[in-house]
Design a protein around this nucleic acid. Structure first.
Lengths: 118, 118
DNA sequence: ATAGATGCAAAGGGTTTGCACTTGA
DNA sequence: TCAAGTGCAAACCCTTTGCATCTAT
């Protein structure tokens, strides 16, 4: 399936439009509805992870990367995975709150864009 | 204006539907378009802050609360402000990345719901 | 009388769905 | 032949916008 190929070729999280665009490079007549259906299927199967990013909208990325968060570069307007997590979970919620999960979205300039600006 | 009253009555972040519902308790014939327009106006004026929550969708809250993050209780399905921040900013992004901002979304059970379950 | 705010309905963007058609076992 | 996958268009939800109406100065 073309959609799986797209995610193997691109390591960063992709939006629906990007999947459609890259997918059409493989299967010319690829349809929006097909992309949506397969993204949902692959997400249910656990092969993809769906992310609703506060500024970039809906993104999908391959599962199995362990705990990580996304960095949104405001220059190239892309999201990148950053491994690890700098949240102190013990202090994140006050007493009485049961903290089960968290998501962190980081914003700034990625290494690549930062280097280019010199 | 009725919409300002709604935010003074409810301290937690509110969705558009909630603003409409609570607003209609004040002005019966309040219209969706009016709510959207005023939420946008108040946001531009700096009186409200717009939040795109990964699971709750678009929320608005009063500005001026300082740096804080949202806790989404999965039992009552509401978002609450938690003051402070447990992120170690120095470790949050690797060398070469310029970290400008961040957003944290916490998930679990709030104190009120946690107490009720006893 | 006039500028601004409102209601209503239409339009817009993103996503889902119904249905007919194609494809491959 | 039949089940599964696809394309297309309509429908759907959330949000914005055009336009006529209302309101308060």
């Amino acid at each position: 399936m073309a959609i799986e190929q797209v995610f193997n070729q691109h390591k960063r999280p992709l939006g629906v439009n990007e999947v459609l665009e890259f997918g059409r490079a493989i299967v010319e007549k690829l349809n929006q509805a097909t992309v949506y259906r397969n993204l949902n299927n692959l997400t249910e199967e656990g092969w993809l992870n769906k992310i609703v990013h506060p500024t970039l909208g809906t993104l999908y990325e391959r599962t199995g990367k362990g705990h990580h968060h996304l960095f949104h570069c405001r220059k190239c307007n892309r999201a990148y995975d950053l491994p690890g997590c700098a949240l102190n979970e013990k202090e994140a919620a006050p007493d009485g709150f049961l903290l089960e999960d968290h998501e962190i979205y980081l914003y700034g300039v990625c290494r690549s864009c930062h280097n280019k600006s010199h």
